[in-house]
């Protein structure tokens, strides 16, 4: 590891923590209905939305209508994205004349964007019209993120309310998340990103003449268009000199801003934020990385404010950082250490003034090792899934870090809203375990945690694990799935495990090397994304309703304090133990074996 690299990681973490309090306090004010500095501008818009949609903002509901609203808006969003993809050939803002997307790919993408996963089996610039990107994908980036925040706010009210039937009005929380939080921040970031060179245009793709023509090998074809084969049946290739390249354009800056802030992660272009039109400079890279964790981190403070004990929010943030920081340093160290096989060949992998050193395969030279490792760790700690380097090219241990962060349930920051409500489920389990140890009914934030809450929390914890492990197991036994693997063997297993870990935890990043745009993966990953989003939201809201109806328990000498280092340690151990016990066997078959093979003598 280089000192300069560590300094950059430290700068990032300090900037993030400094922004937690101001943004967290602002969001707490927004969700408690207090007047904020944005009210003069956005208040009339908010009231107009309620009037037009017939919503009475003062009317609250119990958890069932709240959950129904969240599910309905997501289902309608998915249907809209599906229809846009299927009909894009007939719709405007399609200068490249891109055809309709296939039904299975449209299903996968619709579910992916409605669930805040943003797994992409398609290549954006070759598949989606500008209209589909803007009206379908970018809109879902806002709505799916707002749904996650709304569910968290409802759960928070479950802790704060006493003997109440209601947990809030979904439409109000949903509107305020979008209008007061996501839209202003996205607007600001989009302007800065476009100033840095991120494209924002409706112009058709441009042809550019290459400064230096390149020769590539392409398959040779017969007169009837079929591939030419040699005597052994292998495809014949021929040289082709390329003198021009196509530069894809589009309204990218506006979509990139919300894809980062909303922990969505779906790139406008195929290679996501490794593309120079999506992430052109070190400054745009820093801001995009900051945007990944900004809202999930600040929501910890919002939670503390809303439960009238900010120490609770800081404790949850501390638990996230305790897991995040060692894994970040671990990924950086693994990538900076490089490939031992290259050392044997005499390749210089040492960092110097002339090169970043380490494992630079699949990484952008303008970002280097530290910022690639930082992005990979942040994007998988949060359920973002955007990438600025190819995780498939990471060293085995460097690739294990993002995979395991997803498998921990996307609770280390996690998605906007969903990360914190996931961590709160672990907190429920942690106080339950502590209660078992001392023989006392567990409590959290003054509410007794009883059998119903523990059952629901167990569902929240177990559903993603089942989606990941069952999906992976089915895939490795299905020929239609294994033929998509470009690297058979241990690494191929890692590619499949990564894909289901990503979909089954609503992350959306890809390990690459897996041709996932096939009917099998489009359906299997689509199902994994659906269940790991909505089958978690429902029990979380059910817990919110159950907690809100309870009376507050007085704090006594026997109450376990949940803002102390002891509880942070207990929470971290609970998260890590569940993650380790569930996924260590699978990881041992993938990245751990690959690491041993890489460093073994044979």
């Amino acid at each position: 590891m280089t000192g300069q690299g560590l300094l950059q990681l430290a700068l990032y973490v300090v900037a993030l923590v400094l922004l937690v309090k101001p943004l967290g306090a602002y969001m707490a004010a927004v969700f408690q209905g207090e007047r904020t500095f944005m009210a003069p501008l956005l208040g009339p818009v908010e009231r107009l939305i309620y009037r037009l949609s017939g919503v009475d903002p003062a009317r609250e509901s119990d958890w069932k209508p709240y959950a129904f609203g969240a599910l309905l808006v997501n289902l309608l969003g998915a249907l809209a994205v599906y229809a846009l993809q299927r009909l894009q050939g007939f719709l405007p803002l399609n200068p490249q004349g891109l055809a309709a997307v296939s039904p299975d790919s449209s299903f996968n993408t619709a579910v992916s964007f409605a669930t805040n996963t943003n797994w992409q089996g398609y290549a954006g610039e070759a598949t989606m019209s500008y209209l589909t990107q803007m009206l379908g994908l970018a809109v879902q980036n806002f709505l799916s993120a707002a749904s996650g925040i709304a569910v968290l706010i409802a759960l928070t009210r479950g802790f704060t309310r006493r003997e109440a039937g209601q947990i809030g009005n979904f439409w109000v929380d949903f509107t305020r998340s979008t209008l007061y939080v996501l839209l202003p921040l996205s607007f600001l970031l989009a302007v800065v990103l476009s100033a840095q060179g991120v494209v924002q245009s409706f112009a058709p793709y441009q042809q550019a003449t290459l400064v230096e023509p390149v020769v590539i090998q392409v398959p040779a074809t017969n007169a009837d268009g079929t591939p030419q084969l040699d005597a052994s049946g292998a495809a014949v290739t021929k040289d082709q000199t390329v003198t021009e390249q196509t530069l894809p354009l589009g309204p990218a800056a506006s979509q990139v801003a919300i894809k980062q802030l909303g922990t969505n992660g779906g790139g406008f272009f195929n290679v996501n934020s490794a593309h120079p039109f999506e992430n052109p400079t070190p400054l745009s890279n820093f801001l995009e990385m900051l945007a990944i964790l900004l809202i999930p981190a600040a929501l910890c403070y919002t939670f503390g404010s809303m439960v009238n004990d900010r120490r609770q929010g800081w404790a949850l943030l501390a638990a996230m950082l305790v897991i995040f920081l060692p894994l970040l340093v671990g990924a950086f160290a693994a990538e900076q250490a490089g490939n031992p096989r290259f050392e044997a060949l005499g390749v210089d992998q040492a960092a110097s003034a002339m090169q970043p050193g380490g494992n630079m395969e699949g990484k952008e030279t303008r970002f280097g090792i530290a910022n690639s490792a930082l992005w990979a760790t942040a994007t998988t700690a949060a359920s973002n899934g955007s990438v600025n380097a190819m995780h498939d090219s990471f060293t085995p241990l460097g690739g294990l870090v993002p995979m395991w962060l997803m498998q921990l349930g996307e609770v280390v920051f996690g998605g906007v809203g969903s990360g914190l409500y996931g961590m709160l489920m672990f907190a429920v389990i942690a106080v339950f375990i502590a209660g078992l140890m001392v023989g006392r009914t567990p409590e959290y934030l003054g509410k007794k945690i009883e059998a119903y809450e523990v059952k629901m929390a167990a569902v929240v914890l177990l559903v993603p694990c089942v989606a990941v492990l069952l999906g992976t197991a089915v895939a490795v036994m299905t020929p239609a799935a294994t033929t998509s693997v470009a690297n058979p063997g241990v690494h191929g297993f890692s590619e499949i495990l990564y894909a289901f870990s990503s979909a089954g935890n609503n992350n959306g990043s890809a390990f690459a090397g897996l041709s996932a745009n096939t009917p099998f993966y489009n359906f299997a990953l689509g199902i994994a994304m659906w269940v790991s989003r909505y089958w978690l939201m429902i029990p979380v809201l059910a817990i919110a309703g159950s907690l809100a109806a309870k009376r507050a328990t007085a704090v006594t000498a026997g109450t376990l304090p949940t803002h102390t280092p002891l509880f942070v340690t207990l929470l971290v151990i609970t998260v890590l133990l569940v993650g380790a016990l569930t996924f260590l066997p699978a990881l041992a078959l993938g990245p751990i074996v690959e690491h041993l093979q890489l460093h073994g003598s044979h």
Partner: peptide, 30 residues
Amino acid sequence: MEILVLLVTLALCGATWALFRLCDRLRGQS
């Protein structure tokens, strides 16, 4: 393929609704 998409979506909606009802019923029993 459109039919398959429809069937899978309906199955997911049905299963999600079943979980919703189960959560509600379990709460009634607690």
